[in-house]
Structures are given as structure tokens and as C-alpha cells.
């Protein structure tokens, strides 16, 4: 346990000084631990990996709050617990409709409505990479949600929902620019 915290400390210290290799090793090393923490709070496997990624992003954004010499493990667990609780709370507070019920209706979403906008490329830069990738694949390249899901490790329904949300955001952005 302490060994692990020491190893993480050494890696994160080097990472914060700009060593990308050490940082990648650190993130890879902690990911299974985060996965366990997320799984411990989750009642289904559904979206767990999304939350793991949210925790990784949080660790990334807040890695400067760890001071060299402090034990890494408690720091990491505190962030993971906070972010996991936060993620589950938000998902609970959000629309409670099971994605698969929604998927049938979302399929009607005409692809290419805001995607026809001339400055789609610019709009896509304004949303996160993952959503932009889904919009490109489904809306522009015309891949099916199932294909995209298989490639990205998401369920078909999750891809449709992500696509729908991304389109809503893009519409909003396109609207605010005009």
C-alpha cells in the first residue's frame, strides 16, 4: 500500500515537472484503482467507464493540488470518491429515462440539420472531442450508432444519446453565433 503510494508519488512528481512518460504511467497505474472505486458505488456497469474517465479528467485538472511529499493515495482516493459521488448524483438528477427507450425516438433525429451548417468544423471545435467525434461519425460520415458504439466502446443507445446531446449543444451554439 505504502509502496504503491510511494511509486505513485515518484511518478506524479516527475509528471508535474513535465515528464509525459511518467504521467502516462501514473494514469495507467491508477486507472484500475479508480475503476474499483467507481464500481463500488455503482449498481450497474452502465456508464462506469464514463465516470472513470471523468475521474481521470478531474485528477488531470487538479494535479497541481498535490504537493510533492504528500501521500498520493489518499489524495487520489479523495478526488475519486468526490467525483464518483458527484457523477452519480448528477446522473440521478438528470433525465431518468432509460436510454434504450429513448433510443428509438432519437433515431428520428434528422442527421444533418445543424451538421449542414457551413461552419460545422468551427462549431465542432467548441464541444468536447468525444462528442465531436460522434457527430462527425454519425452525422457526416453516416456511420450507424451501432458501428460508432462498437468502435468507441459505448452502447448503441449511449451513442444516440450522446449524438443527440451534441446536436442540441451545436444548435445552441449556432443560434448564439447568428
Amino acid at each position: 500500500m505504502t509502496d504503491r503510494s510511494d511509486r505513485w508519488g515518484a511518478l506524479l512528481g516527475r509528471a508535474n515537472r513535465g515528464e509525459a512518460v511518467a504521467y502516462a504511467a501514473f494514469l495507467q497505474d491508477v486507472t484500475p484503482v479508480i475503476r474499483t472505486i467507481v464500481r463500488g458505488r455503482s449498481s450497474s456497469e452502465f456508464e462506469n467507464e464514463d465516470i472513470v474517465q471523468e475521474v481521470l479528467l478531474a485528477i488531470h485538472a487538479k494535479r497541481h493540488t498535490w504537493r510533492e511529499g504528500d501521500p498520493v493515495a489518499p489524495w487520489l482516493y479523495a478526488i475519486a470518491r468526490y467525483k464518483t459521488a458527484d457523477a452519480f448524483r448528477r446522473r440521478k438528477g438528470a433525465v431518468q429515462v432509460p436510454i434504450d427507450d429513448l433510443a428509438e425516438r432519437l433515431a428520428d433525429e434528422a442527421p444533418g440539420d445543424p451538421t449542414a451548417a457551413r461552419d460545422l468544423g468551427r462549431l465542432l471545435e467548441g464541444i468536447d472531442e468525444r462528442s465531436a467525434g460522434i457527430v462527425r461519425a454519425v452525422g457526416v460520415e453516416g456511420e450507424s450508432a451501432g458501428e460508432v458504439g462498437a468502435r468507441m466502446g459505448m452502447s448503441e443507445g449511449a451513442v444516440r444519446v450522446a449524438y443527440h446531446r451534441a446536436l442540441t449543444r451545436l444548435k445552441k451554439m449556432a443560434g448564439s453565433k447568428e
Binding site: A15, R17, L27, T31, L57, R67, E68
Partner: peptide
């Protein structure tokens, strides 16, 4: 995005500001 890819992306970013 696969978690592996996310890690690679994050690792490629510049170092954070100093802890103080």
C-alpha cells in the same frame, strides 16, 4: 473515447502550474 486514448491525450498536455 477509449480510456487508453484519454490517458495518452492527458499525458501529452503541458505540466501544471507549481503547487504553491
Amino acid at each position: 473515447m477509449k480510456t487508453e486514448d484519454l490517458i495518452a491525450t492527458l499525458a501529452a498536455e503541458p505540466a501544471p502550474p507549481p503547487a504553491a
